[in-house]
């Protein structure tokens, strides 16, 4: 199977759920979807096309919305499902029922962007420290970090 057959199959099976489909480089396919269709698309990819390996989930802050990219890979190509959720209501369905290995990436998304993942089996913080102030999401673009002044031990000489 090559990229073109996969694109054709995606168009055939997902129909008008696909908002946009691009193939910018060999073995890289980007499919754009609505967030409500995400689970259906993951299900299709996994059960019909055999994409069982989720490489990671990337979140990008676009300003008004968060863009999420699910990178799937198997031995002949790499499919990236792209979806957007609004910033003021960041709700995302969990795909852990389909792909159990996704839980770490979803926990990371919660930490870094403040996205609420619905039905996540285990939603505790993953990477941020225990004493992290709530409501701070480091990877949002409007979050700025001020480095506290450092002390020079023993004073300046």
């Amino acid at each position: 199977m090559n990229d073109q057959t996969l694109i054709d199959k995606a168009k055939a099976s997902l129909g008008d759920k696909v908002l946009d489909i691009t193939n910018p480089a060999p073995r890289r396919i980007f499919i754009k979807l609505k967030v409500d269709d995400l689970l259906a698309a993951v299900n299709w990819l996994k059960n019909e096309m055999g994409f069982t390996h989720l490489a990671t989930i990337t979140g990008v802050d676009l300003g008004q919305a968060f863009e999420l990219i699910y990178h799937f890979a198997n031995s002949f190509t790499c499919v990236n499902l792209r979806t957007e959720i609004p910033r003021d209501n960041p709700l995302l369905p969990s795909i852990c029922q389909l792909i159990p290995g996704a839980v770490l990436y979803e926990r990371e998304l919660q930490d870094m962007f403040g996205i609420v993942v619905q039905n996540i089996p285990d939603g505790r913080p993953l990477v941020l420290p225990d004493d992290w102030p709530a409501g701070n999401y480091p990877l949002r673009k409007d979050w700025k970090y001020e480095r506290p002044p450092e002390v020079i031990p023993g004073g300046k000489r």
Binding site: L128, P129, P138, Y145, R147, E150, V151, P153
Partner: peptide
């Protein structure tokens, strides 16, 4: 990593070296 949000700085910011 100087300037990253999760890094305090050198060890000497925390304990004497």
């Amino acid at each position: 990593y100087r300037g990253a949000y999760n890094v305090i700085g050198g060890i000497d910011q925390v304990i004497p070296v």
